[in-house]
Write a protein that binds this DNA or RNA. Structure first.
Lengths: 227, 227
DNA sequence: CATAAAAACCTTCTAATGGTAAGTTTTTAT
DNA sequence: ATAAAAACTTACCATTAGAAGGTTTTTATG
């Protein structure tokens, strides 16, 4: 098992290096040599651990999605009510640790691999489905089943849209701007209830504060993709 | 001026060929040789008309965005009320002629060029802004200024989100599915008015019918990117 | 500890790629 | 008719993805 673990450590190092290469040079100029250089090994090593460049990019893609889902899991630990959990899912997708210009740009670069890479497609589908079912689960506390289904799909698409925009445009999109965009959507979808409005506002504030601490911690960031 | 026109014809042919190459092989494997082969010329010709691959991809990107805005202009001609114009903008972005698996996949592939290509960024920004201001203009008939601004940005992001999803997933997303997703969003944003609901429904139907005819016509398709 | 097997790693080689440069043919303008 | 310019081709070069083979390091087992 040890050897297996060394292998997986190397693979993680190399995907991190590849991610960094995509950030620095863009997908088309992120060569295997540069990936090796960043990781401090020769190009041969890269191809020893990944059968080809597609496999490497798939690993990068998978890793960045894993990071995202770990954020959700991490924030979920602190969410105690359905509304808090709903907000945790949203905030986890836009916390500064993962939602920043470098990561958004490289995500946009990476997804070009998806249409011709079945592995990436599976990762993407699983990821969409996970977020969707999480959202449905919480939304059902506020909406009838079919409405919840619809709203969940809608929010998922919106998350993707915000990410793409942030990746396409040169000026950074702040976490708070992204989150308030989501808030707008949620407010249009949930029935407005005077009595719980204040409570919800507090819940949002709590989750956002927790996110800054929990996802901004060094321990969490060290698992992150950026160097 | 003739020579200029020959040049622009060739450039159009070559961007179309490049688009086709991206569809067939994916961005990373869409080589200049393959582009030349599809266009029926040697690789040298491609580089004679475009200074490098980035310039070629930028042209493809620009061309596909132009096509999109031409769809909007075309549909606008038939829209007579603010609601019809609002719907025309939306439907133009999802008419079958341009919203289909091949085009979506290759759009997703292409946008990876954007973060490291200032020209593409400008195209993208201009495009976003155009759609946004068009939407604001129509939404102002139904919402106060600031609300209209917000709603317009929101719809723009949603359009991008739907496109990305359609580009990432292997199963095709139908035009009608995309449009009904937009309808859901619009219905949540516009104040519900019993008296105009039926009229709006009719307006949507009219525009969608017009879109099938006007954007599905051979004359319009011939200007399209696909071979 | 000794040693064989396996895994990690490096170097070298090849075909393909993006891009350049120098040339030839065709178009255009006068 | 002819000179200039543009379109196109070919030959070339440096870099790239990837394969193959060899060397070192790790691991397992007697």
């Amino acid at each position: 098992m040890r050897s297996n673990s060394i292998r997986s450590i190397r693979r993680a190092e190399l995907s991190r290096a590849a991610f960094e290469a995509v950030i620095r040079y863009g997908l088309r100029k992120a060569t295997l040599d540069k990936v090796g250089e960043i990781a401090g090994v020769s190009k041969g090593v890269v191809l020893h651990h990944f059968k080809d460049k597609s496999a490497l990019l798939e690993a990068v893609f998978r890793r960045s999605n894993t990071l995202l889902s770990e954020s959700v899991v991490e924030l979920y630990r602190y969410a105690e009510t359905p509304y808090e959990r709903l907000w945790a899912i949203i905030v986890a997708n836009f916390s500064q640790t993962i939602f920043n210009p470098s990561v958004c740009h490289s995500w946009v670069s990476l997804i070009s691999e998806v249409p011709h890479n079945i592995g990436c497609q599976r990762v993407q589908i699983a990821n969409n489905e996970r977020i969707r079912s999480n959202l449905v689960h919480e939304l059902k506390h506020f909406l009838p089943e079919t409405e919840a289904q619809h709203a969940a799909r809608h929010l998922g698409v919106l998350i993707d849209g915000i990410w793409v925009r942030a990746g396409l445009l040169p000026e950074p999109v702040s976490s708070s701007a992204a989150i308030s965009e989501m808030e707008y959507a949620v407010s249009k979808m949930l029935p407005y209830d005077e009595s719980s409005a204040a409570k919800h506002k507090e819940a949002r504030k709590k989750i956002e504060t927790v996110a800054d601490i929990a996802l901004g911690s060094k321990a969490f960031k060290d698992r992150s993709l950026q160097a």
